[in-house]
């Protein structure tokens, strides 16, 4: 990665790396919101007209194409730093505790970021293969709407999709708060309370919004 060589060294400290995680993570949340808004067009019942138009716009508009590069960079940085931390974590405590009552002092979401990250990452790969690579690289003859419909009518794919969204909820339940805390924006307990509420709302609404779509298509097949 070329960027790394020109990155100032402070980004290589544990705190700097967390800042990268936080900044990219929050950026990815905004992406999720935009993505979800587009996806909800699938539910319009217009045979995919609106959704296909949206997909067309997203894949041809030059501004979006530039943003797309930023998006990819965001994903890669976020994943890269995440993997770095996962590998690093064991090093700071080579011998673990025989008994650890972590439930008493921290939330399950905050402690399962690794797990949720890995599941979401697998989902991301499958998802990209299915839609992005299929359409943008291989040039699928189907419209985007048809692709989605085909995928979601497959119960296995839909189940995988829904489970992934549950884990995404886990990831967001801690991620949003954690990102803002890492950027130093949570200055007192009042802000903390507000941020935690918003975080909970996002963690609930975003994955639910995504998950409704495959369930909608799947249920229509019955």
């Amino acid at each position: 990665m070329k960027a790394a060589t020109t990155t100032p060294s402070w980004l290589h400290t544990s705190v700097g790396r967390k800042v990268i995680m936080a900044a990219t993570g929050l950026f990815l949340i905004t992406f999720l919101i935009v993505h979800l808004a587009g996806n909800l067009l699938l539910l319009r019942g217009d045979g995919g007209a609106a959704f296909n138009a949206y997909a067309e716009f997203m894949s041809t508009n030059p501004a979006i194409r530039i943003l797309e590069i930023a998006l990819f960079a965001g994903f890669i940085l976020h994943i890269y730093q995440g993997l770095y931390f996962i590998l690093r974590e064991r090093k700071s405590r080579p011998q673990g505790y025989a008994l650890n009552a972590a439930n008493a002092n921290s939330s399950i979401f905050s402690r399962t970021m690794r797990l949720s990250a890995v599941v979401v990452l697998v989902f991301l790969v499958v998802h990209l293969r299915h839609f992005f690579v299929e359409h943008r690289v291989l040039g699928s003859p189907l419209t985007m709407y048809e692709s989605c419909k085909a995928a979601f009518e497959n119960p296995y794919y839909s189940a995988f999709y829904v489970v992934s969204m549950v884990l995404l909820a886990f990831h967001l339940a801690h991620g949003f708060y954690s990102g803002l805390q890492t950027l130093g924006l949570i200055m007192n307990s009042r802000i903390e309370r507000i941020v935690k509420w918003i975080g909970a709302g996002l963690a609930f609404a975003i994955p639910l919004g995504f998950a409704i779509i495959p369930m909608y298509f799947l249920l229509k097949t019955f």
């Binding site: 544990s14 921290s106 708060y177």
Partner: peptide, 15 residues
Amino acid sequence: EGFGHCSNTGACAVE
């Protein structure tokens, strides 16, 4: 020193 990174679980402040 080899301390790990902070992942904001908040366990530290509880203990």
